[in-house]
Design a protein around this nucleic acid. Sequence first.
DNA 1: AAGGAAATGTCAGGAAGCCGTCAGGACGGC
DNA 2: GCCGTCCTGACGGCTTCCTGACATTTCCTT
Lengths: 225, 225
Amino acid sequence: MTRVLVIEDNLDLAYGLRNNLEIEGYEVDVAEDGSIGLARATERPPDLIILDLTLPGLDGFRVLKALREGGAAMPVLILTARDAESDKVRGLKLGADDYVTKPFGVLELLARVEALLRRGAAPGARGSLRFGEVVIDTRTRVVERRGAPVALAPKELDLLLALWERRGSVVSRAELMREVWGYQTDVLSRTVDTHIAELRRKLENDPGRPAHILTVRKAGYRLAL
Amino acid sequence: MTRVLVIEDNLDLAYGLRNNLEIEGYEVDVAEDGSIGLARATERPPDLIILDLTLPGLDGFRVLKALREGGAAMPVLILTARDAESDKVRGLKLGADDYVTKPFGVLELLARVEALLRRGAAPGARGSLRFGEVVIDTRTRVVERRGAPVALAPKELDLLLALWERRGSVVSRAELMREVWGYQTDVLSRTVDTHIAELRRKLENDPGRPAHILTVRKAGYRLAL
DNA sequence: AAGGAAATGTCAGGAAGCCGTCAGGACGGC
DNA sequence: GCCGTCCTGACGGCTTCCTGACATTTCCTT
């Protein structure tokens, strides 16, 4: 599901937005100040961020700057009360993708959100994830490699999706166990490793030297795009 | 100009719809109960009807039934409360073309209206759903395979329509139970599977290796076109 | 550079889970 | 009552999953 993070300290506004976005079928997370928002966006990158500029503590500009410096690539839509032209320019220079000035119409906002997501999802249809030569269609749960379908067992796909959710960063075995298996136990068996091996066998060119499903010693696994 | 008839007793909602539709360039007529709507639709057939199911007096189902029996062919989009999932199937069986559950997003509604009108412009596309060698006539409730009629039990047709609604995507047993049976229980019996098996027996060339009514292990079923 | 400890990769077999199938019985319409 | 329909639970086949033993790699220590 497409995930949107709303970083906005006016909670009335934030929850209003959440309602409208959820009706449109998005999964919505709300952060009520800059640092919370930044943390949330880093640990679990959403598909789009709606960012208020005037925030207590860490303001919107700094959040945006930190995000982009951290390599975050998702579209960011800025909400600004001041229709000061310079804010818009400054925001766009820092890597915002669009802005809406308050007060704004919900319809306008929704339309812009959709436009940004459509643009962002230009390579590859919505609902299909990809890395390397692999395409995952979340709608049908079909996975293809070089255009040829690959049969993944349910657990394998779940594991792959958990890695995808946090692509780029290291995910520990314990976290994978929790996300995919629901346990909270320490890992003493080779369960995760076995499934990783199977994924490599099915998805990597040279399973012995994986190019995407990487091991990070003493830390866990990482999915590289 | 393209004309839309909105049959809806909640006038706030009705006029809200009218505004939005007019902004999109449609000519909009509002009828506030079922018999008025039916009369209006008969005397001056619009290009599309948006029909609320819960209406005072003549309810939406009856309006729809009367319309279709009277030979009206324009696309009908029904509005239904979210908790009445099985209404969707019933509506589609009576010859509705699409539905939107309340509360709904305006964007979604407009998109669906546009889609219906575009589709309606294509000859022969309306009223008959198809996949593979199977044709479902929603008007007459007749299902054909390779041109020969196939006798489907009511539940089987309901199930097939529920799959058709979400064709291409995986639909879980729980969702099918909810849409077709109206329960909210977990699935512990083989009810869904049994009906799926029956559909395969009647509609697939090789029921053992279905080409359209597919199993997605651990996830549910999927209708492939 | 060699050795060793810790971490990860690999494998195979049994256990568990999931789905297809079937038959029996309940239910309701004609 | 009869017939079609529907639901259910049991059973079996097949896939998937987990696990622990063993092999290999990595990296730190000396």
